[in-house]
Simulated assay, not measured.
Amino acid sequence: MSGLLALLDDVAAIAKVAAASVDDIAAAAAKAGSKTAGVLIDDAAVTPKYVQGFEPARELPIIWRIARGSLFNKLIILLPLALLMASFAPWLVPPLLILGGSYLCFEGAEKIAHVVMPHDDHSGGPDGSHDIGDPTHLEEKKVQGAIKTDFILSAEIMTIALSQIEQPTLWMQAAVLAVVAVGITFAVYGAVAVIVKMDDIGLWLSQVGRLGLTRALGRGIVKFMPWMLKILMVVGTAAMLWVGGSIIVHSLAQMGWHGPEEFIHHIAVDYGGAQPAVEWGITAALDFVLGLAWGLLLIPVGVKLIAPLWSAVFGGKGDAEAH
């Protein structure tokens, strides 16, 4: 009997340790995932364009295919690479974060430049592929382009998450990264699915609603969704520049150059009036300005050098421009 009680005590102790580990993983995943907000907002804002022009019945299957590709990117390719980097080359994390932050700044600045500067719109859809007659071919092209773009964003997400993990053991890092990968993927593409289908829901309510209020709500949803997408794009662009600038500033500090971070901190403290919310707002605004300035400087590099190189390696102008 005493042996059974000892065994039960051991099982209870193991269960407590396991529960504590689960709590630690959940807390670390929440902390790491929160740092990727700018990338997530941009991803959710951009992805709906990949289903534009398709039959409503194909929208959710296309989003599911992109989500599966995103999970493959994160769990099968990027997670092992992140663990290898954490184990053998942790010094690579800040430079990669700077590279990813620069990408966010470039994308955000390019979107702003696209709006404020005269330009010729591409014929067809966002990737110039609406002239393809075969819907199956078009769908395959859109999905593959979305998954390629997702790989870049997923790499940034996983690198940011890795930089926030404080657990020293490899299995804890792997568990946190896996939770972040799965949670973020379903959060982003679940939100995208809701956004894409909201106009259909609104149309359905406006047609079959029994109450006048229900039908009016449906019509309101249909009218509001185009504005919702525009608002989401604006918020996503601002978040990209703010997060991109913040990532670069903090990563430079980790590499030993504390000047930009200290400069921003001093301004925030001097003009923040000892109000944490005001100091945070000033810091975010300065990170945004820095991100925008850096992104504008990168536009010629991206357009003249990186985009042609991307097109040559991955084949197709559309994929390079799809984002």
Score class of each variant (00 low, 15 high):
residue 302 G to F: 11
residue 192 V to S: 01
residue 197 K to L: 07
residue 215 R to G: 01
residue 217 L to E: 02
residue 234 V to F: 11
residue 172 M to Q: 06
residue 179 V to P: 09
residue 180 V to T: 03
residue 290 L to S: 12
residue 293 A to Y: 03
residue 290 L to E: 01
residue 292 L to G: 07
residue 294 W to M: 13
residue 202 G to N: 05
residue 264 I to L: 14
residue 233 M to S: 15
residue 212 G to Y: 03
residue 195 I to V: 14
residue 193 A to N: 07
residue 308 P to V: 06
residue 292 L to Q: 11
residue 237 T to W: 05
residue 267 I to D: 07
residue 299 I to Q: 05
residue 295 G to Q: 00
residue 208 V to Q: 07
residue 292 L to M: 10
residue 220 G to Y: 05
residue 197 K to Q: 12
residue 305 L to Y: 13
residue 268 A to F: 08
residue 167 Q to G: 05
residue 273 G to L: 06
residue 283 T to Q: 11
residue 214 T to D: 03
residue 195 I to P: 03
residue 240 M to N: 13
residue 212 G to R: 08
residue 275 Q to R: 12
residue 309 L to S: 08
residue 195 I to M: 04
residue 239 A to E: 07
residue 220 G to S: 15
residue 240 M to R: 12
residue 178 A to G: 10
residue 288 F to T: 15
residue 206 S to F: 00
residue 216 A to L: 02
residue 219 R to V: 02
residue 287 D to T: 12
residue 244 G to R: 04
residue 179 V to D: 03
residue 248 I to D: 11
residue 234 V to A: 13
residue 206 S to L: 00
residue 308 P to I: 07
residue 211 L to P: 00
residue 196 V to C: 12
residue 309 L to M: 04
residue 193 A to D: 06
residue 204 W to T: 15
residue 172 M to P: 00
residue 274 A to W: 04
residue 300 P to T: 11
residue 261 E to R: 15
residue 236 G to N: 06
residue 289 V to T: 14
residue 198 M to G: 03
residue 186 F to S: 00
residue 231 I to E: 02
residue 234 V to Y: 05
residue 200 D to V: 03
residue 190 G to V: 08
residue 212 G to C: 05
residue 311 S to D: 01
residue 221 I to T: 08
residue 267 I to H: 11
residue 242 W to I: 12
residue 234 V to D: 10
residue 259 G to Q: 14
residue 304 K to F: 04
residue 239 A to Q: 06
residue 166 E to R: 13
residue 269 V to I: 15
residue 237 T to V: 11
residue 214 T to R: 04
residue 178 A to K: 00
residue 288 F to H: 10
residue 275 Q to K: 08
residue 184 I to N: 12
residue 178 A to S: 12
residue 181 A to T: 01
residue 179 V to H: 07
residue 248 I to C: 07
residue 191 A to T: 14
residue 303 V to C: 00
residue 296 L to S: 01
residue 291 G to Y: 12
residue 273 G to H: 06
residue 235 V to A: 09
residue 267 I to S: 09
residue 181 A to I: 02
residue 258 H to K: 15
residue 287 D to E: 13
residue 205 L to G: 06
residue 255 M to F: 14
residue 255 M to I: 15
residue 238 A to K: 04
residue 197 K to M: 13
residue 278 V to G: 09
residue 220 G to R: 09
residue 201 I to G: 03
residue 307 A to R: 14
residue 211 L to W: 00
residue 192 V to W: 08
residue 236 G to Y: 05
residue 274 A to I: 01
residue 254 Q to K: 15
residue 215 R to V: 05
residue 201 I to K: 01
residue 193 A to G: 14
residue 181 A to M: 06
residue 240 M to C: 08
residue 166 E to N: 06
residue 259 G to H: 08
residue 295 G to M: 04
residue 215 R to D: 05
residue 241 L to H: 11
residue 305 L to Q: 04
residue 276 P to E: 07
residue 171 W to P: 02
residue 254 Q to F: 05
residue 190 G to H: 09
residue 291 G to W: 12
residue 191 A to H: 01
residue 249 V to T: 15
